[in-house]
Design a protein around this nucleic acid. Sequence first.
DNA 1: CCTGGAGTTGTCCTA
DNA 2: TTAGGACAACTCCAG
Length: 479
Amino acid sequence: MKTSNNQVSIHWFRQDLRLLDNPALFSAVQSGRVLPIYILDDVNSGDHKMGSASRWWLYKSLTNLNLSLSNNLEFYKGNPQIILNELISKYHVKEIFWNRCYEPWRIKRDAELKNILEQQDVLVRTFNGSLLWEPWKILKKDGSPYKVFTPFYKKGCLNAKVPRTPLPCASIDSLVADKDNQITIDDLDLLPKIKWYQDMEKLWEPGEKGAKNKINTFISEGLSEYKEGRNFPSKKNVSQLSPHLHFGEVSPNQIWYDARSQESKHGIEDSLNHFLSELGWREFSYNLLYHFPKLPTENLQKKFDNFPWTANGEFINRWKKGLTGYPIVDAGMRELWKTGYMHNRIRMVVGSFLVKNLLLHWHEGERWFWDCLIDADLASNSASWQWIGGCGADAAPYFRIFNPVTQGLKFDAEGEYTKKYIPELEAMPIEFLFNPWEAPKDILEEANIVLGKDYPEPIVDLKESREKALEAFKSIKVN
DNA sequence: CCTGGAGTTGTCCTA
DNA sequence: TTAGGACAACTCCAG
């Protein structure tokens, strides 16, 4: 189906801020002249309005996307239904293209929108630009969704149709502008008044080019030792692609096939498969969110509705600020605050600490991560917090309680990561870096540390809080 | 419907 | 010093 060349169609950019392997954009530009737009929608997003760190990232990413579109990207803010209606009547648009999103609020919004547009004889063409497999395609034989990762991935995904191979770059020769649009990217108010993002600017390169650079660096420096190295926060073995993936600056298909292009390399098999399975975890999270839309707010396992979570404002604040007195936890929380990111293993450590040692509800962690993470993603964030909370799909067993001292010694054996984010512990010898409260007086003195002054005393006792958690989990046993 | 095997990432204790 | 088992019971999944 082709429209005449004078016809203007719309490509609506959402979580697909790229030109390469963009199925909707690729089709749109083949249909004739295209008006590329972005709409900041804070109207429909409900209790998960985009967080602050994400907004900074989005600002940078949109800026770069606009550059690659020769400044033809048009920005709008508000309810897409109203904005699209105006554009459609103004330019007599007959076709609109977008890549699908999977957050429940977006599914609802887009379904309503599609309905209305089609009633006006506008052809709505939607594509899969964000997932390797559509959530409704990966089901058990009886048609119900998977709740355990391994069968989901091995039986479900790997036996399903192979992911689409990436499409070429979309041509931008026939873009048109909305001449009356006065809104600039700055009018979207994505940036905060206080410039807390200055450190982040040095660390991240939002946008399609930055994503490509990350892939290349990861493939040449991180992938071959990924399986082991991914556990160590000071090593360079994790891809750090999550924010790029979240905003669609790269598709999972591109990553999938780029990584797989290395498969003939000697000794890479285990690491490669492990990395691909991490993309599988992303798919699993989206699958869960799609089939259990309450995932962000309700315990997947109902018995957890009776879990004796506590509420302690002081604990929450100290956890957020990285002042728990447990250096590996505090390092993680400060990494998050400073960089908008946290290494995966440390996410588990701080998550376990919040939920199991502080007995705070996983919602507290979920909300904080949502606001602070540049890769905040409704599916992954919700699924992961439920996982560490023990209430999710295929969740961590109740007895798996991370010991922040052991984890530090094991995965940050030189203390490089911990000291990077907690410089006040720079002079602390490694034997006591993760448990400074147990250090003898002279050691503390020599390290220039007065506990409770230069660095906090631990806010809970490890052994005691662990036992309390085990008790709490016992209390929700079914019989 | 029944059955059996298995389930991302840990810790602690004991022999 | 190190390796192995306990830590519960449940649900999931496939045959």
